[in-house]
Amino acid sequence: MKILPSVAAMLFAALASPPLHAEEGGEYQRGLAVAREVCSACHAIQAQQLQSPNARAPTFLALATTPGMTATALTVALTTPHAGMPMFRLTTEQRDGIIAYILSLKQSGSPPGK
């Protein structure tokens, strides 16, 4: 039963540490790189772009500022087939990076680092 205090201490330490944000891990930067390769042919991926190359594709800023937009909603959008959106085979890291990048546009109104 001496294991319980050490488990409790580890749990306390995990709960006491601040959560990592996507910006701290550079996840959104990786997401921007993937978006440039995969998404930019159809979507305006930077906040300064007012119109997407494909008029039917929303801009990333429009996606980010849609009321109620969450990481979960973006995950569904990127993993569920829907009209006009080709299905890409993204790794979890690529998908999470794109989502972090899109949500960063909501927070700052422009891409981080600009």
Rank of each mutant, 00 (worst) to 15 (best):
1 M>G: 15
1 M>I: 04
1 M>Q: 11
1 M>V: 08
2 K>D: 15
3 I>F: 12
4 L>S: 11
9 A>C: 07
9 A>E: 03
10 M>T: 14
11 L>V: 14
13 A>K: 05
14 A>K: 07
17 S>R: 12
18 P>E: 02
19 P>F: 04
19 P>G: 00
19 P>E: 06
20 L>R: 09
22 A>T: 02
23 E>C: 13
24 E>Q: 14
25 G>H: 01
25 G>P: 02
28 Y>C: 12
29 Q>S: 14
30 R>P: 05
31 G>C: 04
32 L>Y: 13
35 A>H: 06
35 A>D: 02
35 A>Q: 00
35 A>N: 02
35 A>W: 02
36 R>G: 01
37 E>Q: 15
38 V>S: 01
39 C>H: 09
39 C>E: 09
39 C>T: 12
42 C>E: 10
46 Q>V: 03
46 Q>R: 14
47 A>P: 01
47 A>T: 05
49 Q>A: 10
50 L>S: 13
51 Q>F: 08
51 Q>D: 06
52 S>I: 10
52 S>R: 10
54 N>E: 09
54 N>F: 08
55 A>P: 13
56 R>V: 11
60 F>H: 04
60 F>D: 03
62 A>E: 15
63 L>V: 10
64 A>W: 06
66 T>C: 00
67 P>W: 05
68 G>N: 08
69 M>P: 08
70 T>I: 01
71 A>P: 09
71 A>C: 07
72 T>W: 13
73 A>F: 09
74 L>H: 07
74 L>G: 03
75 T>A: 12
77 A>I: 07
77 A>S: 05
79 T>M: 03
80 T>E: 01
80 T>R: 06
85 M>N: 03
85 M>I: 09
85 M>V: 08
86 P>I: 08
86 P>C: 09
88 F>H: 08
88 F>W: 04
89 R>P: 08
89 R>Y: 01
90 L>K: 04
92 T>E: 15
92 T>N: 13
93 E>Q: 12
95 R>V: 10
95 R>S: 01
95 R>F: 04
95 R>H: 04
97 G>H: 02
97 G>R: 08
100 A>W: 06
100 A>Q: 07
102 I>S: 07
103 L>F: 06
104 S>P: 03
105 L>P: 06
106 K>Y: 01
107 Q>L: 12
107 Q>S: 14
108 S>V: 04
108 S>Q: 15
111 P>Q: 15
111 P>L: 14
111 P>D: 15
111 P>K: 13
113 G>M: 09
114 K>V: 07
114 K>Y: 15
